[in-house]
Design a binder for these strands. Structure first.
Length: 261
DNA sequence: ATGTCACAATGGTTGTGA
């Protein structure tokens, strides 16, 4: 089973790229972020035509997350339970496979910049609420994957210039600590577990300043797996070639393969 | 070359967020 996470930076602006990539990669489940459109405006029919079921949690202009799945999506949750959030940043569902249920979430964690604005406390509050929710999920001892744009750079090797990013909301010590707390609940961060992270595993390059050709990237899109899901993890992949396409997103798809046999 | 992009509300450009 192939599961992908992709911040598309507007699903309408990225529709052609998204369709091309879906046909090429043939993922079973996709977590999308930054839809930048309301549910009614989501390009459902084009994506359904490729064989996907769709659940969206959209928002005008900003944010918005969705799940695409070849399996039926059930027990949909929109928003982190118990967390009052004005932004559409979290959607969760359960799929039933021949080898049992799998819970999947698509999340778009707040950016948090600038750090001296209310945006950074909001980011940390979001991370705390998400950690609390993940802790509850862990108690159920199920297979689950929390996929998305975490807007968190886990370690120095995940950023081209650690010193320059020291004060940034994506890399500040508090952000990294919160990300570690999350992982330390017993989750497995897929890419870091199966590969050596570094300049080859970035997932985002700014549109500005020639960041992509210079490989001035960061690794902020992650899959966190419960122990039962991590037991099935056999492969990870980052589809960097999509960054070379016309009208690219600033993020590229990050994929994991679970052996559900 | 400050090598960006998407969106919204304009009013034909500017602000916002990333």
């Amino acid at each position: 089973m192939l599961i992908a996470s992709w911040n598309v930076n507007s699903v309408k602006a990225r529709l052609q790229n998204l369709l091309t990539w879906l046909e090429e990669a043939k993922p079973d489940i996709v977590a999308l972020q930054e839809l930048k459109c309301v549910d009614e405006a989501f390009p459902r029919s084009e994506i359904e035509a490729l064989g996907y079921n769709i659940e969206t949690f959209g928002q005008k202009t900003y944010n918005g997350v969705a799940l695409l799945s070849r399996y039926r999506l059930e027990d949909i949750i929109r928003g982190i339970p118990g967390f009052d959030d004005e932004h559409s940043r979290y959607i969760e569902a359960v799929v039933s496979t021949s080898s049992g249920a799998l819970r999947v979430a698509s999340l778009y964690l707040p950016n948090g910049n600038p750090v001296d604005s209310p945006k950074y406390p909001y980011k940390l509050a979001w991370m705390a609420a998400f950690e609390k929710h993940a802790e509850i999920l862990m108690q159920n001892e199920e297979a689950f994957v929390l996929a998305g744009d975490y807007n968190a750079i886990p370690s120095p090797q995940d950023v081209h210039a650690p010193d320059a990013w020291e004060g940034d909301a994506l890399y500040r010590p508090e952000t990294r600590e919160a990300f570690r707390r999350l992982v330390n609940l017993g989750l497995t961060e897929a890419v870091g577990t199966l590969t050596t992270t570094g300049p080859d595993t970035y997932t985002f390059w700014d549109y500005q300043g020639g960041a992509w050709p210079k490989n001035k990237g960061i690794r902020i899109d992650h899959h966190l797996l419960s122990p039962l899901a991590a037991d099935k993890l056999v492969n990870v992949r980052i589809d960097k070639h999509t960054r070379d396409w016309e009208k690219p997103s600033d993020h590229v798809p990050v994929l994991i393969e679970l052996d559900m046999a």
